[in-house]
Each structure stands twice: as structure tokens, then as C-alpha cells.
Amino acid sequence: MRRFVFLTPLALSLIIGAFAVWGLLNDRNPSEIPSALINRSVPNFDLLPLPGLNSPGLSKKELLNLEKVSVVNFFASWCLPCRAEHQSFIKLSRNDDIELLGINYKDNDKDALDWLTELGNPYTYVGNDFSGRTGIDWGITGVPETFIVNKNGKVVHRFSGPLVGERFEEFKELLMLELK
């Protein structure tokens, strides 16, 4: 009995160690916070169009009326990673089964317009979230951030950070799965 008492510290440290091994070997990112929106309907929002751009504005109603798999991308002209991932969306816009929806986040109208003119506009709808209010409702932590929304208006995936290279491939795979 007495022996067992002296073994407790070792036993406890082994338990902690087991969790540490799991935590290290498992491919996980402790600072990644899962979006609370996953498997929920998109939040309410109603955004005006960007003045001077011939894409209409975006609201929850319009998104639900699409009845298509859609990709909601938060971007801003002041955000360099957004510039980096923009080509990915241009490529994606050739696919007619997917609706690409942009939300311009905390941006200046003219800068955003210039940016879309320079790099091309892959979005069918662009909502102007000047105040950042819609960004808060979607729970974004920064730009770029991208959501995959299914036909019923449910958020199924969320990506934070630019979709380039491997991450873009991963994103495309998940998107294709959703289309099936």
C-alpha cells in the first residue's frame, strides 16, 4: 500500500505526458478557433453594393434565394494576403455551379473599386461592409476569411488566411464534396 502512495506522482506525470504526446503528434493548431457558425444558417445581414461597381449588393435573403453552393469571401484592398489569393478566386469564378460572393471589409469605396478593376472581379455579388458590422456577425478574426455555404444557406466550412497553394487545393476538394 505504502509503495503505491509513492507511485502516484509517477502515475500522474505519465497521464500528463500521454496527453502531451497526443497534443504534439496530432496534427493540430491550438490557436485555431473553430467557427461557431459551422452547421448553422448564415447570420442576418443586408449590405449595399459598392458604388460604381456593376455587381449588386448582398443580403441573407439573396444568398438563400440562390439555392446554390456559394463561397463567401471577406476581402479588403488594404490586405496583402487578399491580393495573393485573388487569382484563386478568378480561377474559381469559371465554375458555374458555384456562386462567388464577396464582402468588402472596412474598406474605402474608391480603393476597393480600383482594386477590383485592377485584379478583376470574380464575384457575382459584392456587399460593402464599411462598418465591419457584418464581419462581426460572421465572427471573422481578420481578412481574408472564406466560408463555404451549402444550398440551404448553412455554413459548412471556414478558412482563415489566404487560399493559395496547398490550402487552395484543400479548399477546392471540400468545395467539390459539397457540390456532389
Binding site: 505504502r2 509503495r3 509513492f6 507511485l7 506522482p9 509517477l10 506525470s13 505519465l14 505526458g17
Partner: peptide, 14 residues
Amino acid sequence: SIGGSLLLFAYRAP
């Protein structure tokens, strides 16, 4: 270090 020392402890401390 921790496992070894606690094992030694369990063995010797009693």
C-alpha cells in the same frame, strides 16, 4: 528526467 526521477523516487523514498 521526470519519469526517471519519479520512478527512482517511488523505488527509494519508502
